[in-house]
């Protein structure tokens, strides 16, 4: 009889019993609804041990890879520790580099702690030392690089971004938790075309993801659309053009809503441009990062444009202005 550990307590699961039933029988009421593996209300994560394959039916590959499963149809075959989230140790890292990428975006590179691993496209939670103020930032680096790269936009009245711009210096130490997030590339299906769309610093996770994709020798076309209101908001244009020149199947399209159109770029509404260029998105794997209203609009457009829900990965950013 497998033992299920949840919030530090052990629960023994009888033969053939689901984890949901086992927990309910012992007084732990996990959220649930259909109890048949369809509605995903009871989704929870294996922090230790492996959930049986059938308990991950219908979940996205990115969730499966992180051990998520459906408690209502999970008949465990081994001991498991389950929970909604794992408790991350706190890491400390030195600022190696601080460089402006444009007027409002700064690139911070941190020394990667040796025991810290992540997937390209995930995010970390940065902690300001003096008062523990915490904000999430996506990683633009690759897991095997010896630095962690963040693209931080100066938010008007932003407490953390203001501090990073004005105070944080090369050589300082900063701490963080993580990683988290399920917007990342899983190698495989190398003939599946990819669409990556980011607004503003939504480029950061995509910068990690597309390089991860190229490294895994993804064969199909990879389209990266980076959008901003005007050209001044774009960044890393030269680097991205160099990647496009080097990899014939990687296409970089800088997009602006108004003003001068950058070389090889487009003007228009970013929620419409990818479909205008690509036509049908049937069969595409899609990654969307940046402003929540744009990401949400794009999710619907991409789905209606033919992409399957299982293949649309997104990371809507939240910008927190200073509260008075």
């Amino acid at each position: 009889m497998p033992t299920i550990t949840f919030e530090g307590k052990d629960f023994s699961c009888t033969e053939g019993e689901t984890i949901l039933d086992c927990m309910t029988r012992q007084g732990v009421m996990l959220p649930s609804s259909c109890q048949s593996g369809a509605c995903q209300t009871c989704m929870i994560r294996a922090l230790k041990g492996n959930p049986p394959e059938e308990s991950q039916q219908g979940l996205k590959d990115t969730l499966k890879a992180q051990g998520y499963f459906l408690a209502c149809i999970c008949r465990p075959t081994e001991d498991m520790t389950i929970g909604l989230s794992s408790v991350s140790p706190r890491f400390s890292a030195r600022v190696l580099e601080k460089r402006l990428l444009n007027e409002t975006v700064v690139r911070i590179r941190l020394q990667r702690p040796q025991d810290f691993s992540y997937r390209a496209g995930q995010f970390i939670n940065l902690v300001r030392p003096e008062d523990e103020l915490t904000r999430s930032y996506s990683l633009a680096s690759l897991p095997d690089e010896d630095f962690l790269e963040l693209h931080i936009k100066r938010v008007p009245d932003g407490q953390m971004s203001g501090w990073v711009f004005d105070r944080l210096a090369e050589g300082d130490d900063i701490s963080f938790f993580g990683p988290a997030g399920d917007c990342f590339y899983i190698p495989g299906k190398a003939d599946q075309p990819l669409l990556l769309v980011g607004t503003g610093t939504g480029l950061a996770p995509l910068y990690g993801i597309f390089r991860d994709v190229l490294k895994h020798e993804h064969r199909a076309e990879v389209h990266l659309f980076h959008a901003s209101l005007a050209e001044a908001g774009l960044y890393l244009q030269d680097e991205l053009r160099a990647f496009a020149a080097q990899h014939k199947h990687f296409h970089y399209v800088p997009c602006v809503l108004h003003g001068e159109v950058p070389e090889g770029g487009l003007q228009g509404n970013i929620t419409e441009l990818p479909l205008k260029v690509l036509g049908s998105l049937s069969g595409y794997r899609v990654f969307l990062c940046g402003d929540p209203p744009i990401v949400n609009a794009l999710r619907q457009k991409c789905f209606l444009g033919g992409a399957s829900m299982q293949d649309i990965h997104s990371d809507p950013f939240v910008f927190t202005p200073q509260s008075s």
Binding site: S33, C34, Q35, S36, A38, C39, Q40, T41, G58, M309
Partner: peptide, 19 residues
Amino acid sequence: KQAAKQKAFLTMVTGGPNN
């Protein structure tokens, strides 16, 4: 979340396992 609810609904109306 909406797609998951629709899956539960379609599972139910087609006579699949449901509650």
